[in-house]
């Protein structure tokens, strides 16, 4: 009877130009929203500063890492954790938009259907980039230095942001599926906290008990942190675990991000085409 439109299919009249313009319109809308919600800014600005200060000042004296100084070791871990949590905004944001009914408005407009998702993930990328700049500044204050070239340092930042962008799409799908911003926040807390703590973000994996060490070596968060650490030149002479992702962290993160995008972008578009506020 009814022919179903292909999810993500470009509608007639939606040109690449209008697609980019729609994405930009929604990005701007989300950024205005961000500016007017102080709690979000506190999360994006204060929390990274707090983490850098607490870990570098409180634990630096007690946690010994092999082959390097703890502050140098720590920063990539905090970057990784922060951008990962920053990506959860995409989930809470989509859930919030559904709850408020604004998605119904968007879906009755002749705009590009993907623009809402693109705007969402874009604005969260901006948010993550802002957090990153603030963390880098704070890091410099507490004595962190990158020892690799400036280009390699930038590559490390880009790697973190790429992964966070890909992960935003995962969270956007979660947000559209569970539809409650509170649930998204709580669930991501419960999943992401163990994921970042049972990794090499704050401690070296060889110091973890047996099964946790294996988990940490294969944990994607570890690969992300290890990749950034390498690119920043912060690994010193620390031993590198034998697990493949730890030996090739940058490649692992690039491939992993690509896989996430290839899988979750179409899933998100399909979900968005049928999701309705109430």
């Amino acid at each position: 009877m009814s022919t179903r439109t292909l999810p993500g299919a470009t509608s007639p009249g939606v040109t690449v130009g209008s697609w980019a313009a729609d994405g930009w319109t929604i990005t701007q809308r989300n950024l205005i929203k961000l500016r007017r919600s102080p709690d979000m800014l506190v999360f994006a600005v204060l929390q990274p500063v707090m983490f850098v200060l607490l870990f570098s000042q409180v634990y630096a004296g007690s946690i010994r890492v092999e082959g390097t100084d703890y502050t140098q070791y720590l920063m990539a871990g905090i970057f990784g954790q922060t951008v990962l949590f920053g990506s959860t905004f995409s989930g809470a944001g989509m859930a919030q938009d559904l709850k408020e009914g604004i998605v119904d408005r968007f879906r009755t407009l002749p705009m590009s259907p993907s623009a809402v998702l693109i705007g969402r993930t874009n604005s969260d990328l901006v948010l993550n980039a802002v957090s990153m700049v603030i963390m880098i500044g704070t890091g410099f204050v507490v004595g962190w230095r990158f020892t690799a070239s400036f280009g390699s340092f930038l590559a490390g930042i880009a790697l973190l942001l790429l992964f966070s962008y890909a992960f935003s799409w995962v969270m956007a799908l979660v947000g559209m599926s569970v539809r409650s911003p509170e649930t998204v926040n709580n669930a991501s807390f419960v999943i992401l906290f163990p994921l970042t703590f049972i990794s090499n973000a704050f401690v070296q994996s060889q110091n973890l008990p047996g099964p946790l060490e294996t988990f940490a070596d294969w944990n994607p968060v570890s690969a992300l942190v290890q990749g950034a650490r390498q690119l920043f030149g912060n690994t010193g002479s620390a031993p590198v675990p034998d697990a493949w992702p730890m030996q090739h962290p940058v490649l692992t993160v690039l491939a992993g991000s690509l896989v996430l995008l290839v899988v979750f972008v179409p899933l998100c578009l399909r979900k968005f085409a049928t999701v309705s506020s109430r």
Binding site: T3, G13, S37, E100, G101, D104, T108, L109
Partner: peptide, 28 residues
């Protein structure tokens, strides 16, 4: 169903749950 994009260019919809963005101004 077949041509939603054409439909969207000729309709306006207003619902019982005002679909406006709380954080934006009326003008925005």
């Amino acid at each position: 169903v077949a041509e939603p994009a054409r439909i969207r260019r000729m309709i306006g919809a207003s619902g019982q749950y005002a679909a406006v963005d709380e954080n934006l101004t009326g003008t925005e």
